[in-house]
Design a protein around this nucleic acid. Structure first.
Lengths: 223, 223
DNA sequence: CATATATTCAAACAAATGTTTCCAACCCGG
DNA sequence: CCGGGTTGGAAACATTTGTTTGAATATATG
């Protein structure tokens, strides 16, 4: 269907520029000139800018969902029984490992995280729907396992806390370079992604296990 | 300098559209037509689109920094002594209250939150620099108070945890529309920003007070 | 080798954008 | 009532955007 060279060069350049400036702020001429391909190549190979954006995501999310599914398979195989649920720590650990694994080949963890952040903050975009439709199943599977690991948490509360932690991870890792600079300057500490995960673990676990908030005023009055 | 009517109508409309679609995706024609003012009015009153964006932010951040400074003044006045530091909960509470207070007059909490999120996710824009230069002092004052409230936390650890929580808040609030859609669909729960803050409080406190991570392998071996 | 298909390329296209111009309408102090 | 500075408005401007075209070239196929 396509000379892999041109398609790959477009994808490699596009994901970097998208991550740096966002989708609307990155023009096709910007991408094609930096990738040293013809302007029409994008429309030829991908059809439209919208499809290019989806292709950029697919290149990360396809391998991610595949690996995450098999990782969850193994985890479930190790905890077969009825009362033998997978601990929250192991679930989070597995997700973290998979997230770190996928883009490791291209050293593009930062790009991947920033793209995820953009996809979420695009309030009314086609992107969220596309990702939800295409890759939603892994996440519902994961959240179901988290539900069993935290049976005392109300469903809505767990939903929000999971997204709180998603924000922590995405924000931290997508802004890693800037934060690392500050941290090294102020505390002369050379941080690695592995260190960050080590620091994140107790924070995320404590956050998920935090006491329930006091109910809103209306509910409190009614009870 | 300007008839307040037109200027205000532009600002009111612009902030809503910016919050809904982002800056690049909102055209001046979009703003002016919805505000029922002439297209040239934006460039006449503000000079450029960039200045309009900054003006939208200034209308929120000017009163915010003022109120936050006085709120911190009162807090420090209530805890004068050497060993009488302000508790972390009170610091977070004060910040949350101030954030909620400012846009309450126009019922535009959501808009303010989303604008803050946009400002941060605009990775390399003029906006973060502008906000940092113009309003950075309050933030450093706040972090210094947090340092005194958590004396047992190593400086580097507190640095990272503060940014973890910053990520939580910014990610959640900037993607609020998207998350709210999902939450309403799955749990038919109409969430408000105030509810979110209520939910965030115990999570943030627990995260800041989480146990320290196990030291990295190299250090653990050296000790 | 010849032919068909796939890809690249320069150019042009239509639409949308931020900005500027220039003139009419307005307001208010004299 | 008037006259000068301020504001409003329609149109045009110059760019930039995503997309399409049609010919040229490369690649593969039989």
């Amino acid at each position: 269907m396509a000379q892999p060279d041109t398609v790959t060069r477009i994808l490699d350049t596009a994901e970097v520029l998208f991550a740096e400036r966002g989708f609307a702020e990155t023009s096709l001429r910007n991408i094609t000139s930096k990738a040293k391909v013809n302007l029409a190549a994008v429309n030829y190979h991908f059809g439209s800018k919208k499809s290019l954006i989806q292709a950029v995501f697919a290149r990360y999310l396809d391998p991610f969902t595949a690996r995450f599914h098999t990782a969850l398979d193994e985890l479930e195989a190790r905890h077969p029984g009825e009362g033998d649920e997978i601990p929250l720590e192991e679930l989070l650990e597995t997700m973290a490992r998979t997230v770190l694994e996928v883009p490791a080949e291209r050293n593009s963890l930062k790009v991947f995280m920033r793209l995820l952040g953009l996809a979420y903050s695009q309030a009314q975009g086609h992107l969220r729907r596309y990702i939800q439709d295409e890759y939603g199943s892994v996440f519902t599977r994961f959240t179901e396992l988290v539900r069993r690991a935290t049976p005392d948490l109300p469903d809505a509360e767990r939903f929000w806390r999971l997204h709180f932690m998603l924000g922590t991870v995405i924000f931290t890792l997508s802004g890693l370079d800037a934060l690392r600079d500050i941290a090294e300057k102020d505390y002369d500490e050379h941080i690695t992604v592995r260190d960050l995960v080590r620091r994140l673990r107790p924070v995320v676990v404590s956050a998920m296990n935090a006491p329930l908030p006091e109910p809103p005023a209306a509910v409190r009055q009614a009870s």
